[in-house]
Write a protein that binds this DNA or RNA. Sequence first.
DNA 1: AGGCTACTTGCAAATCATTTGCATCTTTAG
DNA 2: CTAAAGATGCAAATGATTTGCAAGTAGCCT
Lengths: 146, 146
Amino acid sequence: MKNRREKIQEILRNKEIRLTRQREAILEVIYEAERPVTATYIYSSLQETNPSLKLSTVYRNMHLFVGKGILRKLSLGIENNESYFELIRDEHHHHLICIHCNSVLPLDCPLGEFEEKIKEETAYTLIDHSVKIFGICPHCQKYSKA
Amino acid sequence: MKNRREKIQEILRNKEIRLTRQREAILEVIYEAERPVTATYIYSSLQETNPSLKLSTVYRNMHLFVGKGILRKLSLGIENNESYFELIRDEHHHHLICIHCNSVLPLDCPLGEFEEKIKEETAYTLIDHSVKIFGICPHCQKYSKA
DNA sequence: AGGCTACTTGCAAATCATTTGCATCTTTAG
DNA sequence: CTAAAGATGCAAATGATTTGCAAGTAGCCT
């Protein structure tokens, strides 16, 4: 039974990415979050334990991880223009976004037949798709009653 | 039978927006484009005819028009981080995006029952959603065979 | 037609997210 | 243990978008 740190190191080695303190720390934060996070979130989360970590290093590694297929970059279209990053786990899914607190939850994919239909109708080669649903989470519903 | 300029002026008046040379020109570009456009696209399109128009004015009016329900802002997640804006015409729809030429086609909405299900399962208040399908259009399929 | 007032614009500087150049440090293969 | 390749810190650059402020203009009221 491997602990998280070992699992992260294995992922990096499998992808032929050098192990650095920073990279391990970044991936730990992402694993722990269990939801898409921003570069700034990662940076802030690590300020206490890794005060020398720079935001540019976070961004550089986001790029690297996306390129290596470890992460996926999302453009959620939330008020700010920050990009979110999430682990590419096995299964295809989508996102439910709270427009108050910007938190993000995973959703199953409701397309499928729809894609077939589009493919026939338009003759496009379909490559990928994304579904985003915006709402207000139960927690924010309470606090925005004021 | 109204011409385009008159139609635009009517829209602005209906929304209680002051008529300015800049606003009319901006909306003309958007109407003519018949697809989502960026602020920079609008700005460039107007440099010849309205050389004094500033990009900040375009952005300010994009904001205004979105707020008044004339336009909708899209985050398409295309390589650059530019925002796209489209006219809010009649009905709710979605987008099929060609990843080669960045052209955008409208799609019918495939959600509906799915939203009901999500609402029950998560207790979120659902506000809006977006579906984007990425692919390669028939035209680009030919030219990318090379 | 002229004038007032509030709203707009141009302009320049600020801001925000993200990227990049460069010198210094660290990882890893031998 | 050591050198070379690659990574990081730092600071400055970039690109998109926003903002403060003074000057300009639309729309209303004589």
